[in-house]
Amino acid sequence: MTLTYYLVLAAILFTIGAVGVLVRRNAIVVFMCVELMLNAVNLTLITFARSTGTVDGQIMALFVMVVAAAEVVVGLAIIMSIYRTRRSASVDDANLLKY
């Protein structure tokens, strides 16, 4: 058992989050997947903090949490307003950004 296990777990979680972003269409679930990816990164930061014996990594993780919170607030607000205008929370319905 080494710290590498944590890191590999974080990588797998991050990948699952990324794949989730790609395959899910409900905007809220997509957001959850993004949160999962942020959490995986946090796990990495904390693992390295432990490896190096400094608290800086934990502080990074703390900032990630704060930024994630802010992002979730704004993101959910955006989803709400999109839903109000388009009556749909599917990311495929907001497809005007094209050629």
Partner: peptide
């Protein structure tokens, strides 16, 4: 595509991390 890329990404990053952190010393807090 998502599955292929996901597996590829996980394999690359996992292998890379595992290789880079082999024998990673744990100073501990």
């Amino acid at each position: 595509a998502a599955a292929v890329l996901g597996v590829g990404f996980a394999a690359l990053v996992g292998a890379g991390v595992a290789r880079a952190t082999e024998g990673l010393t744990v100073v501990g807090l």
